[in-house]
Simulated assay, not measured.
Amino acid sequence: MRRFASLTATAAIVTSGLGLEQPASALEPGLAVGTCIVTGYGSKGVIIGTTQNGYRIRLDLTGGILPDQYHGGVTAAPCPATAAGANAPPTPQGRGSTGKATVQRTTAGGCFASEPEKAGLEGTLRGVIRRAFEKDPPAGLDGAVTVRFQSFRVSPGRKADIIDRVQYKPDLRKPVYSVRAQFETCTDFRTATTTRQMERNFLCFTNSTSGQNCSVTGTTAGMRKDTEQYVPK
């Protein structure tokens, strides 16, 4: 009997490691999108979405995302107090263009549509960058990401320099373009949306095997900080 119980426990651990859905009995009561939590390892954060197996967690300290925290692995905890003394979701430190991201709670709303395709060189580059950030989740799951631009500047084309050649391996017969873009993403969950405003530098080039590409190249002085808004539905 003891051996059978041990095998059952082992099977449960293996099933959990494979990412299969745990039974409803493992659900923790009182948890929902926007709830401040602490994980079994002592990390604090806020629930920003749900998955088949549990929750998506944004961590307080780093702003990083735990994409699939199992039910039963988190418990509700007090939110950090604001200047006014009220509880609010934590403000993470994001890996933004120039510093920390800020989180704001706003009123209910929904995601905007992604920017449509446009003609010409700028339209092509906008499409490449947009598709790098947008996401179409599998049928039946939430988390779709849409993208729109606030500003988009393309520098005149130039020949690839030695660093470009080593790092990106562009088609040397084609010019490369520097792009500076301000844009916004919106992640659509079932019970909330999260919008993020960003500014990034890109190098866009033609690759002989995969066509047009754009890669993030870093930050420059004067770029705006990332901002983020959590919007309950």
Rank of each mutant, 00 (worst) to 15 (best):
G63D: 02
Q104S: 14
T206R: 15
T195K: 05
Q212R: 10
K135W: 12
N207E: 11
R180P: 00
V74C: 02
L172K: 06
G17Q: 13
Q182K: 13
P23T: 04
G30D: 04
A144Y: 05
T195H: 09
E28H: 05
I57Q: 00
T8L: 15
T106P: 05
Q197T: 13
F205Y: 15
T106Q: 12
N207M: 10
T220D: 14
G110K: 11
A81D: 14
T219M: 13
Q52C: 10
R165H: 10
C111A: 07
G30Q: 02
Q69S: 14
Q182E: 11
A119M: 14
S6V: 12
D136R: 12
T91C: 06
T15S: 14
N201E: 09
L27P: 00
V147R: 01
Y177S: 05
T191G: 03
L59T: 01
S16Y: 03
R200F: 02
T191P: 01
R153N: 15
D188H: 10
A108Y: 13
A221Y: 13
V231E: 11
F4Q: 13
T146H: 01
A32M: 04
F112M: 10
E115H: 07
S178K: 10
K100H: 14
F152A: 01
R2M: 08
T187V: 11
A11T: 01
R173V: 06
P92T: 10
N213D: 12
F133G: 04
Y55G: 00
K135M: 09
M1D: 12
E28N: 03
N201Q: 10
C111Q: 03
S97W: 05
E21K: 15
T124K: 14
L203R: 13
C186T: 00
T75Y: 09
A9R: 10
G63S: 06
R56V: 15
A181T: 00
T193G: 05
P116D: 08
G110W: 06
S151K: 06
T206G: 08
P89M: 05
G17D: 12
I129T: 00
A192R: 00
F183S: 01
E134F: 03
S178W: 06
T193V: 12
R153C: 07
A26R: 09
V14I: 15
T15L: 14
A144E: 12
A26H: 07
N207P: 04
P170E: 07
G211T: 06
T217R: 04
T15P: 03
A192M: 06
G34N: 07
T206Q: 15
E184K: 08
A181M: 02
K169Q: 11
T51I: 06
F112D: 04
L66K: 02
R105G: 04
R130Q: 04
C204K: 00
T195M: 04
G54P: 02
